[in-house]
């Protein structure tokens, strides 16, 4: 099998976890795995799972120019695959790279398997109402990997890296970045997601969910479509078919009845806990554990219990 080039996103010079998962997915196919990142002097050894690394020099503020450089690297290294995490950056870049290579793209894959010399993709359609297994006859297999699904590799990356340059004339470029006010994790990235719906009563009560998230430490708050449409919470937090599809290890649905479009967005979570006043709510059909009752009474007790566990740990 030909090598797979994996685009690695860096935060303060270190690979993002989502990118390490993409490297792990590539390595698990048995193909030689090459990490590529924008940032000279970054630590290639941190790119676990990669057997080779390429550092791109030049201005990385333009997705179109960066995508050109990535496609060039696919060609110059005679790669049979290109992968990236299905993150904001990966979802923006990968289609451009695929088009440069005139190849189809499989976005947000939950499985990538080698069958002989070919790679097959498994990915959700209709936000997970259907799971599709797909084959490609493109000369380069292009895919993005869903966050929190693939396991990163234990093997350290290479000590040295090759150099290449971003040189295409940009058509669009980032001129400024405003970081989120809080350091809150994105719902697609967080290992624990605590989502609230109409059952929270009013927007101010979401502070209870934020409190529970803070107790966990590695958690973030999500929201149902109903409360986003009502303006209680930002769209970035919306879980469901018209929001984000999430697969955390632990998902709390609090005061969410479980409309089909919400269920589509969270049903691949590891463990699902539902808290709802209505014992007949559809959410209990997908939940591993349920508590019937008023979220506003239950959450403070639950938060205290989690705080206690974390303090002991």
């Amino acid at each position: 099998m030909k090598p797979i080039l994996v685009f690695v996103e860096l935060t303060a010079g270190a690979p993002r976890r989502a990118s390490l998962e993409a490297l792990g997915a590539a390595r698990a196919t048995g193909a030689e795995t090459i990490a590529i990142f924008a940032g000279e002097g970054s630590n290639s050894a941190a790119c676990s799972g990669a057997q080779k690394a390429i550092a791109l020099s030049g201005d990385a503020s333009s997705s179109d120019a960066l995508a050109s450089a990535l496609a060039e690297a696919v060609k110059s290294n005679d790669c049979g695959g290109f992968m990236a995490a299905a993150s904001s950056a990966g979802r923006d870049l990968a289609p451009r790279v695929a088009a440069h290579l005139d190849a189809v793209l499989f976005s947000d894959c939950i499985g990538i398997t080698a069958v002989g010399d070919q790679l097959n993709a498994r990915r959700p359609w209709l936000a997970g109402k259907v799971i599709a297994d797909l084959a490609s006859n493109a000369s380069v297999f292009c895919a993005t990997t869903r966050l929190n699904v693939f396991t990163s590799s234990e093997e350290a990356g290479p000590d040295t890296c090759d150099a290449a340059a971003i040189s295409a004339e940009p058509k669009a470029r980032v001129v400024s970045v405003e970081a989120k006010a809080s350091a809150q994790l994105d719902v697609q990235e967080a290992p624990v997601v605590i989502s609230g719906g109409r059952g929270m009563g009013e927007p101010e009560q979401f502070s209870l969910l934020e409190g529970l998230a803070a107790a966990f430490g590695n958690a973030t708050v999500g929201a149902s479509r109903a409360v986003v449409d009502a303006g209680w919470r930002p769209h970035a937090e919306q879980v469901g078919q018209t929001g984000k599809t999430v697969s955390p290890q632990l998902y709390f649905a609090v005061g969410i009845s479980g409309a089909i479009q919400h269920l589509a967005g969270m049903r691949t979570s590891g463990v699902i806990v539902a808290i709802n006043k209505d014992a007949e709510a559809p959410i209990f059909k997908v939940a591993d554990y349920g508590i019937v009752g008023d979220a506003l009474e239950i959450l403070p007790v639950l938060t205290e219990a989690i705080q206690k566990i974390k303090a002991e740990a």
Binding site: A103, V104, F106, N120, P124, W125, G128, K129, V130, I131, A132, D133, L134, A135, S136, N137, A138, R267, T268, I272, A274, A279, F284, K285, V286, A287, D288, Y289, G290, I291, V292, G293, D294, E297, I298, P300, V301, L302, A305
Partner: peptide, 28 residues
């Protein structure tokens, strides 16, 4: 098309969950 469908399957059903109780008493 370069992509072809090998199979479409419904998502695997989640194992039957259970209601642990009612109200704050169910937290432990």
């Amino acid at each position: 098309n370069q992509a072809s469908v090998i199979a479409l399957t419904p998502p695997s059903p989640r194992a039957e969950g259970r209601i642990l109780g009612t109200g704050p008493d169910a937290v432990p």
